[in-house]
């Protein structure tokens, strides 16, 4: 495919740095999905003209420094509390486009309560949920979304349901809540997947701008450092194992929106 053909299909140049992505060296490991998702968020905010209205809520976890990479206003929340922080920021600033960016430990373990209740109230926010099934920042411990049998530093012999409980599919949980208008599960491991993920983030941010309720975008991601694999092997492992429990695709969409 030529560059022109790609552009004609609505894709973006793979190598261009969005102007909102700051010229800072990212602390993410090579092969990590965060960098790609950051880029998509920056691109969509710019393309939708939301640079002046966007407020990002950063989590505790690997993405704690998200505010160093995207040139918008940010609030760095306590561990798990991003949806509560976003709730107040959005309600008190109705003109702002407020989104959270959270990992699986932040969103689905310590912050489950805030996640569920913000979604249930239908707060006008977007929640971007990076699910890589492991705690990256603290060194590879079990996450609520860790698969059965998966080895982590706190499940060194593999996660066992009888000892550690089952992997938590929180995206399917929030689908059931009346407050969510859009729930989707995406990945960023292939160019095609990246384009789909971008469209999902775009849809979510439009929903937030139009005050349609809570939009929830899960990105099933790799953590090749935590998984102790090469980036390529991690992508393969994700397709073979993570997708069985967390299959990508649209899960709920109450508003079909056009670009």
């Amino acid at each position: 495919m030529t560059k022109e053909e790609i552009l004609a299909r609505g894709g973006s140049k793979v190598n261009a740095r969005p102007s909102l992505l700051l010229d800072a060296t990212m602390h993410y490991c090579p092969g990590c999905s965060h960098g790609v998702v950051h880029k998509l968020v920056a691109e969509v905010i710019e393309e939708l003209g939301m640079t002046d209205s966007a407020i990002g809520i950063a989590p505790v976890g690997c993405a704690v420094f998200a505010y160093n990479y995207i040139d918008i206003d940010w609030i760095e929340a306590a561990h798990g509390r991003a949806p509560a922080v976003a709730t107040a920021a959005a309600r008190l600033n109705p003109d702002a486009m407020v989104f959270t960016y959270q990992g699986d430990g932040d969103l689905a373990a310590i912050g489950t309560c805030e996640t569920i209740h913000a979604c249930n109230r239908g707060e006008n926010i977007t929640i971007i949920f990076i699910n890589n099934g492991i705690y990256g920042m603290t060194g590879g411990q079990m996450a609520p979304t860790t698969l059965e049998g998966m080895k982590t530093s706190t499940t060194p012999y593999g996660r066992r349901a009888d000892l550690n409980g089952y992997p938590l599919n929180i995206t399917n949980l929030v689908k059931e809540l009346d407050g969510t208008c859009y729930v989707t599960r995406q990945t960023v491991h292939t160019p095609a997947a990246v384009r789909k993920a971008k469209a999902a983030i775009r849809q979510a941010f439009i929903n937030t701008r139009e005050k349609r309720g809570t939009s929830f975008v899960e990105i099933v991601s790799t953590c090749n450092s935590g998984w102790k694999m090469s980036p390529a092997d991690a992508n393969k492992w994700m397709e073979e194992h993570m997708f069985a429990k967390y299959p990508p695709g649209e899960i709920k969409n109450t508003v079909k929106d056009q670009k």
């Binding site: 929340a77 107040a88 008190l92 309560c113 805030e114 209740h117």
Partner: peptide, 23 residues
């Protein structure tokens, strides 16, 4: 804005979020 939160933990973090916006 008046909101009954899901917990005191959420309430104080809402305060943190709201105050961060200068309100």
């Amino acid at each position: 804005v008046v909101l009954q939160s899901e917990s005191e933990v959420a309430a104080i973090n809402m305060v943190y979020g709201g105050a961060s916006t200068g309100k």
